[in-house]
Amino acid sequence: MLPDHAKLLALLQDAGEVVGRKKWQKIVYISKKLQLPLQEKYTYHMYGPYSEELSMRTEELCSLGFVTEIKEAKAGYYQYRYQLTEEGDTFLQNMQLDWPRREAKKITSRLNEYSAKFLELVSTVLYFDELPKEDVKEKVHKLKKSQNYSDEDMEEAWQLIDSLK
């Protein structure tokens, strides 16, 4: 248990504040695909790669008081805002984690600048990264019809991935 929880705290600390559960899900997935040592298991869902393990672990961190979750009402849905608490910071220090701080900071601060919708695209592209580019495009168009991603959006996603590798 504990080291995996601590890694999420470290990632959140590097990201600063994360607004939105979907964004948090995608940031963790993309960071994992970019070789940060995260363990959460992902499977593909309606909105791209999703980890139930991450959802539970985040809830656990909130219930332990290591992360704050602020719920905000939006039109038709709720949005959640996550931040590390002082206790979370103390716990992280106690754990003496072997964490690639510099790379993590570079990845998370950059990802945090983008919208959840764009990160959904980036994570979906990464999910199919064993396929040739043209097949990935086809997959995205088929699976993400309602999101209307353009070819330019996909090129931007690949550029972002390349710049973070």
């Binding site: 979907k22 309606m46 393990e53 959802s55 672990r57 849905y77």
Partner: peptide
Amino acid sequence: VIDSSSDLPYDFYRPGEEEERM
């Protein structure tokens, strides 16, 4: 050994939380 609920392969019902799960 510490064991947490997130170590288990089961999920609760999640309502529409910001396009997280259907």
